[in-house]
Nucleic acid binder design. Structure first.
Length: 800
RNA sequence: GCCGAAGUGGUGGAAUGGCAGACGCGACGGACUCAAAAUCCGUUGAGGGCAACCUCGUGCGGGUUCAAGUCCCGCCUUCGGCACCA
């Protein structure tokens, strides 16, 4: 009898072996194919590692361990995305410096990750808060600034009143702060933006070149929100004065049905001409209420339309030359299109609602199957034929759009225009714990970029880093840091005091891993040449419209300035489903359903945790934690160990087809189907138990197959069996010939129902099968009408 | 409202259009034990029959096919994302 498996001792033993001997360190090696596997580096929070992290990291961990045995040179790095609000808020609350908090948290994460036995390249760890790292984050910002892709502008921004901080659109989805859940308010502020919109087209195109799950692509496409339409210029008459307002529409073909014009309450033409508007008081009130409403109600849809007629303004439809009324209404948004629309009530639900409320005429211009006085006809994909539209009558919608745009262009009243829902990226935060923005404000020269050789611009050590009520960065208080000299004119100047958002450091970290210690390059060209694209990147669905878009944007930019040679940073992307609590709810402290990986490791060991977390279900789907289910993985690991009692020198029965298992496990790991890979090995182990025998070679193969998932126990067994180290062995190969059995059992269907089975030789002819079935007597007293025989699969008899 | 994913035993979940329920949990039975745990070996979708077997079964309703969990059409429900985006 083998000694019972002491996971505490043995797991520690192998972890020491791996980490003390730098088993997973890699260097560029042209003699081997490379594999760059990446997981989203964690935010080192105070609460430590979560079982969700274990699932998220396990996929690439398993793939990496397998690829190494397959002879790949594997880069599987780890680091910490450590700037940001949670640490800063925690630091303020506990009166510790964020540097201290960060270092403590990183130390804790490192310890936990090592106790999980992950095969990270520990010599390449990056920490986004270290000056030698953020030097390059700042460097990239300077390149963006120099290419006019970073600009400062005063706008209404999403502002979190609780965190006292400006949020990017991506951080305030659903109108609440990503971090604290407080409802976001609109505030006018000086804001740094990165022109991600300039990259919208490249980000869309790039999706064709990458192996991402379809739903990620769709989600990114929707987020970018490309629409094709036209700008149409409407003359506006105020008394004798004539102004022009641009309207954006995706349906210029419906212009004959435009019976009113609506301006967003914030539209500048209202502000600029307020004294000429007869009912300006009413308008001003409405603007104010719209602004404050934006927080709550403007987010709600399908609410009652409101709006005010702008008295004294008239718009002229540039195609019909007819005068139409001008309104302001909060259903028109200033930050999309031009902030002004032409109202076509017959063919747009919102315009229809508005027209009904204000008694405006509804003119049908697309023939549909409804009475547009009763409901709008909003057929998708331009179904229908134009009516009541002299220039384009009788045309279908796509043709009508083409023709009317040409007409507008020749009249100089409109032109085609592509627009995107995605906004530019609000890039500054009034917070301490972030990368300082390396820009100097000079009274003479304006915004001056720092000299690159002066980077990094280090974050000064502050004792008081709490945010002030005036929404100024804590850095503003540090005058000896703020006051500086203009690099251009040498005069007195001040530093930008806002810092970068947390997403900055994570937008390029995958490049830093290739040459983490290089002081001369953002990424060393030789290292880049070797490692290139990330081959496989796993992460969470929640980052699809944040980190994944931002980092693709930065990489495209770095491509454009010649720093990298792949447009797309990630060749393949996969994502893990959430681990839910045992109650099926999302794990949260308040529900008390959080599972701490440390506790599980203490009770069952790392191999059991790793096996279970991958066995729990489809990798991409959410799965509830099961305190009972893990017992199954525990039993499996023990059974694997106890196979030592069944070892024989040789065994001629071949009732376990290990070749098929090798194929299945190899394929399944590549396809992220870890649950069925594990099931296949379990089945094999069960097979050896019922046979009561296992040979050394079989045992070695089983160990190798499950090694990527449970590396500790398999390292130990392998070492016991061979005296060697499993890391130095090869991934098992299968013999394709052995995948095909000599004889095969095929089901017999009669009228589509299974009535029996026959065992025949592989590739048996239809005749042979029919003869065998007849011998069974299943077809007695029946007349065969038709036989469907699918070789090696099934036979179906249609009988009378 | 729009976009996307999904609905299979008591339970987590498997199934290139070809034997539905692999593998695991739980439950039941047996071996071992003074006993229990652990371990090992069975049984386990529902209903019927002494039985060999039969009938019904993948959210609901239709359809295509020799054959449908899988494909098509129409619904229902749940979850995720976007949302007065012109």
């Amino acid at each position: 009898m083998a000694k019972s498996y002491d996971f505490k001792k043995i797991e520690k033993k192998w972890q020491n072996y791996w980490y003390n001997n730098s088993v997973f360190e890699v260097h560029e090696d042209l003699s081997k194919p490379k594999f760059y596997g990446l997981i989203e580096f964690p935010y080192p929070s105070g609460s430590g590692l979560h079982v969700g992290h274990v699932r998220a990291f396990s996929s690439i961990e398993v793939v990496s361990r397998k690829k190494r045995l397959e002879g790949f040179n594997v880069l599987f790095p780890i680091g910490y995305d450590a700037f940001g609000l949670p640490t800063e808020n925690y630091a303020i609350k506990t009166k510790q410096h964020p540097r201290l908090v960060t270092d403590k948290n990183i130390a804790n994460f490192t310890k936990q990750l090592k106790s999980l036995g992950f095969s990270f390249c520990w010599d390449r760890v990056v920490d986004t808060t270290q000056p030698d790292y953020y030097k390059w984050t700042q460097w990239i910002f300077l390149q963006l600034f120099k290419k006019n892709l970073a600009y400062k502008s005063t706008t209404l921004v999403n502002f979190c009143p609780s965190c006292n901080v400006v949020l990017a659109n991506e951080e305030s989805q659903q109108g609440v702060c990503d971090r604290c859940g407080t409802t976001v308010v609109q505030k006018e502020k000086d804001v740094w933006f990165l022109k991600i919109r300039d990259y919208a087209e490249k980000l869309l195109d790039g999706l064709n070149d990458v192996d991402f799950p379809e739903r990620i692509k769709v989600e990114q496409q929707n987020w970018i929100g490309k629409s094709t339409g036209a700008i149409v210029t409407f003359p506006i008459e105020i008394g004798k004065e004539k102004l022009y307002v641009d309207v954006y529409t995706t349906r210029p073909d419906t212009i004959y049905g435009a019976t009113f014009l609506v301006l967003a309450p914030e539209h500048p033409i209202l502000k600029e001409n307020i004294q000429k508007i007869q009912n300006f008081e009413e308008i001003t009130d409405y603007q104010e209420s719209a602004l404050s409403k934006k927080e709550f109600d403007r987010i709600q849809m399908n609410k009652e339309k409101t709006g005010i007629l702008v008295e004294g303004m008239k718009a002229i439809n540039p195609i019909t030359n007819q005068a139409i009324p001008v309104f302001t209404a909060d259903y028109v948004m200033m930050d999309y299109g031009t902030g002004a629309i032409m109202g076509v009530p017959a063919h747009d639900q919102r315009d229809w609602d508005f027209a009904k409320k204000f008694g405006l005429p509804i003119i049908e211009v697309i023939k549909g199957d409804v009475d547009v006085q009763e409901e709008p006809y909003c057929a998708k994909d331009g179904v229908g034929v134009l009516v009541n539209s002299p220039l384009i009558n009788g045309l279908n919608v796509p043709d009508a759009i083409k023709k009317i745009i040409l007409e507008m262009q020749s009249l100089k009243v409109g032109y085609p225009k592509v627009d995107y829902k995605m906004k530019d990226w609000a890039f500054n935060r009034q917070r301490y714990w972030g990368e300082p923005i390396p820009i100097i404000n000079c009274p003479k020269c304006g915004q001056v970029p720092m000299d690159e050789k002066d980077l990094p611009l280090e974050l000064p050590h502050l004792e008081d880093f709490s945010p002030s009520d005036d929404a100024l960065s804590p850095l503003a208080k540090c005058t000896e840091w703020v006051n500086t000299i203009c690099p251009k004119c040498g005069g007195k100047a001040t530093r930008e005091t806002d810092t970068m958002p947390q997403w900055a450091g994570s937008s390029w970290y995958f490049l830093r891993y290739m040459s983490p210690k290089d002081n001369n390059y953002v990424v060393n060209p030789n290292a880049y040449k070797y490692w290139g694209q990330v081959d496989w990147y796993n992460g969470g669905m929640e980052h699809v419209t944040r980190h994944l878009i931002y980092s693709r944007f930065w990489n495209h930019f770095l491509y454009d300035i010649g720093v990298v040679t792949h447009k797309e940073p990630y060749r393949r992307r996969s994502m893990q489903g959430l681990i839910l609590g045992a109650d099926g709810e999302k794990m949260s402290k308040s529900l008390g359903n959080v599972v701490n990986p440390d506790d599980v490791i203490k009770e069952f060991g790392t191999d059991v945790l790793r096996t279970f977390i991958l066995f729990i279900g489809d990798y991409e789907k959410p799965a509830p934690w099961s305190p009972d289910g893990i017992k199954g993985s525990d039993r499996f690991i023990k059974r694997l160990w106890n196979l030592q009692d069944y070892l024989v020198d040789n065994c001629d029965t071949s009732d376990v087809n290990l070749d098929a298992v090798i194929k299945k496990v190899s394929d399944d790991i590549e396809a992220c189907k870890f649950n069925t890979a594990i099931a296949a090995v379990m089945e094999a182990v069960n097979g050896f138990y019922s046979r009561g025998k296992i040979t050394i070679n079989e045992y070695i193969t089983v160990c190798k197959l499950i090694y990527p998932i449970a590396p500790h126990i398999t390292s130990e067994i392998y070492h016991i069996l061979t005296g060697e180290y499993i890391e130095k062995s090869d991934w098992p190969k299968f013999d394709p010939k052995k995948l095909i059995e000599d004889c095969i059992e095929i089901p017999i269907q009669i009228l589509g129902k299974v009535r029996g089975k026959v065992t025949v030789e592989v590739n048996a002819t239809e005749e042979e099968v029919i003869n065998q079935v007849k011998e069974l007597g299943l077809l007695d007293n029946k007349t065969i009408v038709k036989v469907i025989y699918v070789k090696n699969r099934i036979v179906n008899f249609i009988v009378k």
